[in-house]
Simulated scan of single mutants.
Amino acid sequence: MPKSKARKKAVYTPPQMSKQVKVSPRWLAPVMVASWIIGILWISVYYVAPNAPFIGTLENWNLLIGFAFIIFGVVLSTRWR
C-alpha cells in the first residue's frame, strides 16, 4: 500500500483579533432607572390626584408623558452592556 502524502497547505487559523470589552458610560444606568421611576410616578400621581395644579391641566397627555419616560428608559436599556 502506498504512503499518503503529507499535507502541503497549512491548516487555516483565523487572524487574531483583539476583543475589547465594551463598557457602557457611567451615567447610563442611573438615567435609565431614573427615567423608569419618573414615568411610573408620573402616571401614578395622575391617577391618585388627577386634579393637582399642574397635572390636572394636561388631562390624558399625562399618560403620554409617563409612557414617554418609560420608553426612553427601555431605549437606554438596549445600550447597556
Rank of each mutant, 00 (worst) to 15 (best):
K19W: 13
G56A: 05
W27S: 09
K9Q: 14
N62E: 05
S44Y: 15
Y47C: 12
W80P: 00
A29L: 10
V23L: 09
P15G: 05
G73V: 11
R79F: 13
V74K: 07
R79Q: 10
W80C: 01
T13V: 11
G56M: 03
I55L: 10
L28S: 00
K22Q: 08
T57L: 07
N62V: 06
I55P: 01
N51I: 12
F69G: 07
K9E: 15
V48H: 09
W36L: 07
P50N: 10
Q20S: 13
W80I: 00
A52V: 03
W27C: 03
W27I: 07
L64R: 06
A10K: 05
N51C: 06
R26F: 07
L76D: 00
I43Q: 04
E59V: 04
F67T: 10
N62F: 05
V31W: 00
Y46R: 02
S24M: 03
L58I: 11
M1T: 12
V75F: 11
V48A: 13
P14K: 08
S35E: 00
N62M: 11
K5T: 12
P2Q: 08
F69E: 08
T78K: 07
L28A: 01
S4F: 07
K19N: 15
M17P: 09
M32Q: 03
G56P: 02
W36Y: 12
G73C: 09
V45K: 03
S24D: 08
S24E: 05
K5V: 09
K22R: 10
G73S: 11
R7V: 09
Y46K: 04
R79H: 04
W42G: 06
S4G: 04
L76V: 01
A34Q: 00
G39L: 02
L58M: 09
R79I: 03
V11P: 07
P15F: 07
K19E: 13
V11Y: 05
F69M: 11
P25V: 06
I43H: 03
A49W: 14
P53N: 13
G66Y: 10
L58Q: 06
A68R: 03
V31S: 04
P50F: 08
